[in-house]
Amino acid sequence: MRIRMKFSKRGSLKYIGHLDTMRYFQKLMRRAGIPIAYSNGMSPHQIMSFALPLGIGDESVGEYADIELTGSVSSTDALAALAACSAPGIEILSFKALPDDAKNAMSSVEAADYEIGFTNDPDLSAFSTFFAQNEIVVLKKTKKSENMIDIKPFIFQYRVAEDRIFLRLKCGSVNNTKPELVMDAFYQYLGIDFDENLLKIKRLDLLTVNGQDFISLNDIGLEI
């Protein structure tokens, strides 16, 4: 049986990187006695996959990991067992069985919602004129190349509150758009120096596409 877990990562645990978070979960499964399935072969590993890496220093209240079970356990029991041996800061928010035809979290994630706070008070009212540009061209660096790309199509939604910005951005295996990239472009537009360490990024949720709509990855499974 395949299970989707939603979890948060807050407080000082935002400094735990993606690989370390994965290792944390592997040990957590063992401590909590979750009957997780293992791969075959000489060095078996737990069958577990994460939806999308979260940057070091970013908080989240909407992270996802899928696992496979060999035995059965109810959502309530599993959540209690996990809570009993979790670190404060990583809270398992849901534990749901996935339908047989559901794609895994990693391949179904299409968008991410972010809340971005600032420590240096930029003029956020300019964001709407920034977004009203025909295109928002940025230099995107990857390990192999540097490309000028227009990221405007990948900003699905935005909302400016008093001191923060909410963004819904394209993510996943193609055109993955990080909030830092959008903010870098915005700061350039404002003509001020950009330091990504001054942003306070919180991921609110990860979403997939259902017909015309975005739905939360948490809406796929059912409690058991």
Partner: peptide, 9 residues
């Protein structure tokens, strides 16, 4: 930074 935050299990 995880070297400096403590809070381990």
């Amino acid at each position: 930074p995880a070297r400096y935050i403590g809070g381990e299990i």
